[in-house]
Amino acid sequence: MSAMSQGGADAASLDSLAQALTAATAADMPEVVDQVALARLYGEPLFKLPQDLYIPPDALQVFLEAFEGPLDLLLYLIRKQNFNILDIPMAALTRQYLAYVDEIRASNLELAAEYLLMAAMLIEIKSRMLLPPKKTEDGEEAEDPRAELVRRLLEYEQMKLAAQALADAPQYGRDFLRAEVYVEQALVPRFPDVSASELQQAWRDILQRAKLVQHHKISREELSVREHMSLVLRQLQGRKFVEFGELFDPEKGAPVMVVTFIAMLELAKETLIELTQAEAFAPIYVRLAYTPA
């Protein structure tokens, strides 16, 4: 009997402890529907804002208007309030201007220096307007204290409108691009010139092939360069291009090929033939540099 009563007391104490924990947890949570978390921090639910959250004073600062200088600000205030620029109410304009200067002084003292100079000028103009007008020595009325300010504002507005017109004009690279079309100027193709090293290499190849088929026959033969010049010209007549190697006959031996090569050099020197190639390192071709009669 005593054991049963002790077990019931333990169960009652556990139930009361669970109810107390539930009440304490509910008391810490804000009064939101279904205990929805306000946010999540590192994946953990956040049911109320931390008390030590620091927000810098400049974090929520918003600049709605950006002005390029004091004249820009004055012109903005005048146009916004529909003031007559030739009859400016200096009291209202100065009050609005000083309110803006007080705002920028709190955040940027270097920027406010230029605006403070214009503020001093506005206060001076306002003070001069409160004084009775003085006549000049000629008996004419003195110039309006606002005249100089009006002149500067009108000039600034003209320059600003002109700058805006230039910015809105079509600009190369931003609004349009220049069309470029390549037009072939010459109908006759120009082939690359043959360098001396390429001609030398071609000659070495021909000599190498000639050594493979040369005959071991010793004989004396008188060869004429002029005669071989005529032979080369005769081979080129009626043909547009002839490969460099076709003008040499390896079976006639190296002396004949040497004389033929000298004859070709003489013809090229006298601009009777042209040595050309389609591209660099391409086969070399020979053709007549004149049109036969």
Rank of each mutant, 00 (worst) to 15 (best):
A162V: 14
Y156E: 03
E157R: 09
V242G: 02
V259H: 06
Y182E: 08
E221N: 01
G173A: 01
Q200M: 10
T22K: 14
Q201E: 14
H216R: 10
L166T: 01
P133A: 06
V259D: 07
K269L: 07
R128Y: 08
Y172H: 08
P132R: 02
M229Q: 15
M129E: 12
F63P: 01
S195H: 04
E270Q: 12
W203L: 03
A280R: 15
E143G: 05
M257S: 04
A119K: 05
L199P: 00
L71C: 00
A24C: 13
G245P: 13
E137K: 12
M118E: 09
E155C: 04
E222D: 09
T94H: 05
V183T: 00
L71W: 02
L77N: 01
E266D: 05
Y76N: 09
F261P: 01
E157V: 00
E251H: 09
Q200W: 13
A120M: 07
R128P: 10
F261A: 15
G173R: 05
A20T: 08
L14W: 07
E222R: 13
E251N: 10
F281Q: 09
A169W: 01
R105Y: 12
R287S: 12
Q237K: 11
D193I: 01
F281M: 04
S107H: 10
E137L: 15
A196I: 07
A142K: 09
E198M: 10
V33I: 11
Q208M: 05
R239I: 04
L60F: 15
S230M: 06
Y76I: 02
F244V: 00
D175F: 02
L275H: 02
D28C: 14
L111C: 03
L161K: 05
Q35L: 11
Y172S: 07
Q171V: 11
L60D: 14
L46A: 05
A9C: 03
M90I: 14
Y54W: 12
A293Y: 13
P255T: 04
R204P: 04
P255I: 07
L275T: 08
M257I: 03
R239P: 03
V150C: 11
T291G: 08
